[in-house]
Design a binder for these strands. Structure first.
Length: 255
DNA sequence: ATGGCTATGTAGCATAGA
């Protein structure tokens, strides 16, 4: 089973990229973030024509998540239970015996800002919820744009980013707390190229210079990690005209 | 040091992203 996550930075703009990528990579399940699309305007027909079922939770302009699956999804739930949030950031579904949680973590803007406080509060709610979920779903994958670079090795210029949003200690501590729930970082289960990133700034030739960060992740419960045979960043679509600033991350799970 | 792009909403810029 091939599962993937991709922050598309507007599904409307990126739909041609997505359809081409689905055809070439043939994933069994895909979690999308930043669809920026209201549910009424979601391009369901195009995605179904490509051979996927799709569920989504979106809003105008900001945020928005979707889960595409080859098989019929079950137990579809939007949001973090008990955490009221107008921002559409979380969507969960079960497919092929795997509980998929698609998440678009808050950016946080700047350490000390209101948005940063919201990010930390949101992280608390997520961790509390997932602590219970992993007991209920031993085969759970948390896929998404975490907006956290877990280690300095995940940042092209750690000195420049030290203590800043995406790299601050409270954010990294939250990531470690996810690991303490038993999650494994699928990317780090395998030997990888140094300076592997998933996001590059549109400005200043960020991609061409590989000035990036690894902020999109696939975390797996131990049972799924034991089945994981590979994880990679797919940079191909980032090289195209009008790309998303994020590249997809793809993990392979043995039956 | 800042921000250089990109997307959206909406009609000339403001906001947000990371």
């Amino acid at each position: 089973m091939r599962i993937a996550t991709w922050n598309v930075n507007s599904l409307k703009i990126r739909l041609p990229h997505l359809l081409e990528w689905l055809a070439s990579e043939q994933p069994d399940a895909v979690c999308l973030q930043e669809t920026k699309t209201e549910d009424a305007a979601f391009p369901r027909a195009d995605i179904e024509a490509a051979g996927y079922r799709v569920v989504f939770s979106g809003q105008k302009t900001y945020n928005g998540v979707a889960v595409l699956t080859r098989a019929e999804p079950a137990e579809v739930r939007a949001g973090i239970p008990g955490y009221e949030d107008a921002q559409k950031r979380v969507l969960a579904a079960t497919v092929d015996g795997v509980r998929l949680v698609c998440a678009y973590f808050p950016n946080g803007q700047e350490v000390g800002s209101d948005k940063y406080a919201y990010k930390l509060e949101w992280l608390e709610a997520l961790i509390a919820w997932l602590g219970a979920e992993v007991a209920h779903y031993p085969r759970l994958a948390l896929l998404g744009d975490y907006n956290i670079a877990p280690e300095d090795a995940d940042v092209h210029d750690p000195a420049l980013w030290a203590g800043k949003v995406l790299c601050s200690e409270p954010e990294r501590a939250a990531f470690r707390r996810l690991l303490e729930l038993g999650f494994r970082d699928s990317f780090r289960l395998f030997e990888q190229q140094p300076k592997s990133y998933t996001w590059w700034d549109y400005r200043m030739l960020g991609f061409q210079k590989n000035h990036g960060m690894r902020i999109d992740h696939i975390l797996l419960t131990p049972e799924l990690a034991a089945r994981c045979t590979g994880c990679r960043v797919d940079r191909a679509m980032r090289k195209r005209e009008r790309p998303s600033d994020h590249a997809p991350v793809i993990a392979e799970l043995a039956p």
